[in-house]
């Protein structure tokens, strides 16, 4: 086991090359709906139980299934009203189970990136071969159902092996959402390829905010606005990234949607904000700042 993942060098927030986003935007803003499929009776992983209650966990299973049946549709319409495209963190099995959901995303011009196959299949303890097959399945499935090249990765249920990001880069993906150490993109140290860490966010994630930290819906809306205000102010000096990761089963609940839409309207109503997708932000960073950030980074020595 490693003490340090060794995935990035040290680059203090205040001493970096300046980032300029397209059209003078201060914040590159993206919304990442996690469109997921949780199996009622998943295969067991020794490192993590899938459900909190004994099988069949009817309550927790159906709570998540609500996202695809009901929550997604109203969440997508709220995003439409704000002119906001999604970058879908996709359990690719949804392509086969619920093609209507995928069609609705593709029709809107949303990006699809991978969140594994099922959210009940964890990467912990996978062999390299299994992990490669998992990534290849995502590449193929997303291509088949949308025509899109797979660029981004968010590990299913945030589960990893030591080699996850290496394999993702080697197989041609360009960005990962799994590192939470920064409010700007940065290079990930991998042997092959050019991989970018794109700020996703757990603090702004509805699952963490609503289900883990147990904040109220209106409070969640307030937190999003505050996060944006600060990143917008700091973005005058160097471009920042803000992501709102969503789960339709949570944010698509009738009692929660308004607070989200208010915050989204507030954010998208600013003039110096770039309403982007994950792929677009990663590409802009790769083309313009990757090398400068890599050069400015300070090697890290452990004890």
């Amino acid at each position: 086991m490693k003490r340090d993942p060794g995935l990035y060098d040290y680059l203090p927030y205040l001493e970096r090359p300046r980032i300029d986003w397209p059209n003078g935007a201060r914040v590159a803003f993206w919304v990442a709906p996690n469109i997921e499929f949780y199996e009622l009776e998943p295969p067991k992983n020794p490192a993590r139980a899938s459900w909190a209650r004994p099988s069949p966990d009817v309550l927790n299973y159906s709570y998540r299934d609500y996202g695809n049946r009901a929550g997604f549709w109203r969440m997508a319409e709220a995003m439409d009203r704000c002119g906001m495209r999604g970058s879908v963190s996709l359990n690719v099995a949804v392509c086969d189970h619920h093609p209507e959901v995928i069609e609705a995303c593709v029709k809107r011009g949303w990006e699809l990136y991978s969140h594994g196959t099922y959210n009940t299949r964890y990467t912990f303890n996978m062999s390299e071969e299994q992990e490669r097959a998992l990534i290849q399945d995502s590449i193929d499935t997303i291509r088949r159902h949308s025509g899109q090249k797979l660029d981004g990765w968010l590990a299913p249920a945030l589960t990893y092996t030591e080699r996850t990001l290496e394999l993702v880069a080697e197989m041609g993906l360009t960005y990962v959402c799994d590192l939470f150490h920064d409010d700007q993109p940065g290079p990930v140290k991998v042997r092959k390829g050019r991989l970018i860490s794109l700020p996703y966010s757990l603090e702004m994630n509805d699952a963490i905010s609503l289900s883990v930290n147990l904040v109220t819906p209106r409070r969640y809306g307030e937190i999003m606005k505050r996060q944006f205000d600060r990143l917008y102010a700091e973005g005058a000096e160097s471009g920042t990234v803000m992501c709102i990761p969503l789960h339709p089963y949570l944010i698509g609940q009738p009692y929660r949607l308004k607070a989200f839409e208010d915050a989204l309207a507030y954010i998208t109503g600013h003039d110096q904000v770039w309403l982007a997708t994950g792929r677009e932000i990663a590409q802009h960073f790769a083309d313009n700042y990757y090398d400068a950030f890599a050069r400015a980074s300070q090697p890290v020595r452990d004890l």
């Binding site: 993942p5 040290y10 490192a47 993590r48 150490h181 757990l202």
Partner: peptide
Amino acid sequence: AYPDLRHYTLRDYGNR
């Protein structure tokens, strides 16, 4: 379970 990249990086955020 190992490797918990999530909490490792959330904590390192403070130093960076």
